[in-house]
Structures are given as C-alpha cells and as structure tokens.
Amino acid sequence: MAILPRNSDTNFPTQEPVWKDFGRSTRAPLTEEHRREAFLAYIDFALTLSDSAPERQLILIDHYPMFSPEHRAMLRTQLTTTARAPNLAPSTREGILEGIRQLVARHRRFSNAVWAMPAVETDALDAVGQEFRGSTVVEEVRWLFDEFLPDLADVEPDINVASEKVKALRDQALRKVLESGVGAVDDLFCKARQPYLVAQQAAESIQDTEGIFALLDRWFGRLSSRDERGVPVLCATRLALAGDDWMRQLSDATVSRDWPEWSLGLCLADMADSRTLIDSLKDKPPSAVSRYWATRSQYIRYTDKSLSDEIAGSARQPRVTLPSSPSG
C-alpha cells in the first residue's frame, strides 16, 4: 500500500530518448562483458601482427601487464623465438632486453602495489629476458649507467638507501668490465646513456693512476662532446679521493702524455673552487687557463668573499680563442 499514489501526488512522466531521424536503436546495449571481449579481440589481433615481428613485440612489452595470462604466454613464446633467431639486429635485441628489464624491475620494486604483477609472472618474463642478454660484459651491465637511479628489486623507499645500493652495484660492474681492459671501460662510456656516471665510477673503481691516465688518453685522442664532458667529471671525482697530489699528477701528465696544451684547463673545470686551484692557474699556458674559464660552471662555488670576488673578476676577463674540438 505504501507504494500506491496518494491524494495530491504529482507525476511528471518522461519519454525515453530516441534518435530523431532513425527512431529507436535495435542494437543491444553495451555491457562490460562486451567491452572485455572487444579488448581481448584487439590483443589477439595485435599478437597476430607481432608474430615474427620483433619491432612490434617490443611495443607490446609495455602493455604486457594488461594482458590475460594466456596472452602473456603467447607473447613470451614469440619473444623466446625472436631471441633465438640468428639474424636479430643488435639494436632490437638491446631494446627488447631493456624493455623487459625495466618492466620486471618496476613490478618487483613495487610488488606490494595493487597494480603489480605477481612474482610468478615477473619471474616468467625475466626468464625470457635472459634469452636476450648480450655476449659481452658491457652489454650486461650498461643498464646501471643508463639512468641515475634505475629500478631495483627489494630496495627501501628511502632514496639514500637506494642510491647506496646502486652505487655498490656500479662499483662491482665497473670492476668486472675493467677485467677486460681499459678499452672495455671506454666502450661502456661510449654506449651508456649517462656517460658521466661511467666517468664518476671509473674515478672511484680504477685503483691505479696509470689506468686512469690510459682512459684519459683515449678521451683526449678522440675528443668528442661526450669525452669533453667525461674528462672534467672523472678528474673532479678523482680529486675528492686522491687529494691535491692528483692536481700535480695531472699537470705532469699533460706534458708527459702529449695531451693538448689546453688539456689541464678541461681537467680542472669541475673541481671545487679553492685557493690552491686558482693559484695553480697562474703559471699555466694561456690556452689551459682559457679552457678552464670557458668550461667551468658560471656559479661561484666558494664562500670566502675575497676568493669569490677574484674568481668573478677572472671569469670576466677576455681570453684567447680556444681551438675547436671535433664533434662526436
């Protein structure tokens, strides 16, 4: 009785909207099941196109977490076949390996997140990724030098803890690369997306000074834009470890190793401002002094006012024209 109309009730009936020109649609309304079926059909179609097409498989890796278990298995099978193909292009192999590594590392690092794949899925994909591993140690460890803080499994949320773990892994990696010679370290420097990370780690991990100078020989001999950035980074990092004696060794090396006359200026460019550093420039060749002032940061890196004023004044002085470096 409660639902029956009462006296004084009002009613405003509405008409279900229909297409003005075509009338009521005869098509059944879409449901979530229809959407799911369409989504799965698109994945089926994409996997059909990616069969024997490594470039398309690489694109699908990013979408792997959205696939059903059956579709994930299909993509893993395709990737395994691709990895064992004898004529796979090195760039494609590296791209697929990096895509799988990043995806697995991200889901393992955030394994407690609701969107993270279960361990059984990441383990299965990681096993496929191992099929793409390169034949050289440089290819094996390069990912550690491609970004400042790559995703790692089982890392604390604290960024300082994560940084220390990455630093330890980089030290192990560079020492392993060094077993193949300084040339292998240079190869890593040339291939890494962030070469300055290789330069920093080389300064810390290569114990003997001769090994450091052998690496600088290669960079001064080639002198690409990458090398010009690596030289001051390596030298400044080494200074923090070896002290002021490192500056004397560098000064001697610019003569004994037949580096360009201005090379010392590039070596000193990233070092922290100090009275010792500024005074050491006074007896150096003009080209080395010019290279230093042209390359160093425009910001004052010392709190002593008298030294800061001296640095600012020296930075404004005109310098000799620097020799152009080959691009690379």
Rank of each mutant, 00 (worst) to 15 (best):
P90K: 11
Q57N: 03
D62E: 14
S224H: 03
F213W: 02
L216H: 11
T237M: 07
S327P: 00
R6S: 08
F220G: 02
N160I: 03
D309Q: 03
V141W: 02
S251F: 05
P150F: 04
G23L: 03
S324V: 13
S290V: 13
R218C: 12
T26R: 05
S256V: 15
D21H: 10
A184W: 04
M1A: 14
A202S: 09
L60I: 06
Y299L: 15
L322Y: 05
W19H: 09
W19D: 15
L234N: 05
W262S: 08
K176G: 08
I278C: 08
D158I: 02
P286T: 14
D187S: 14
L216C: 13
V166I: 12
I59N: 03
L152F: 00
F39V: 09
K20R: 15
L216F: 15
P69S: 01
S91R: 12
L239I: 13
V141C: 14
V182E: 04
R56S: 10
R218N: 04
H107W: 09
P29H: 05
G99Y: 10
P326W: 13
E94P: 03
V155A: 10
D21M: 13
T276A: 07
S91G: 04
I3D: 14
R170Q: 10
D208G: 13
K282V: 05
L49W: 08
P260S: 11
A168S: 06
E204H: 12
P86Y: 05
A312N: 12
S290E: 11
L216T: 13
D146H: 08
C267W: 07
V289R: 00
L223R: 07
L169D: 07
R296N: 02
A116E: 08
V255A: 12
R106E: 07
S324C: 06
R84K: 15
V289K: 04
L144R: 01
V128R: 09
P13Q: 06
P118G: 06
D283V: 14
F145V: 12
L223Y: 09
A85Y: 13
Q201P: 10
D270V: 07
L174N: 05
Q298K: 14
D217S: 03
L241S: 10
T92Y: 01
V141E: 06
G129S: 02
D187I: 13
P286S: 13
V231R: 00
V289F: 06
D126T: 11
T276R: 01
M1Q: 11
S135V: 12
S327D: 00
A41L: 06
A203S: 07
R238F: 03
L188N: 04
P54S: 01
N112M: 01
Q298V: 11
A28L: 07
A89G: 08
Q102T: 07
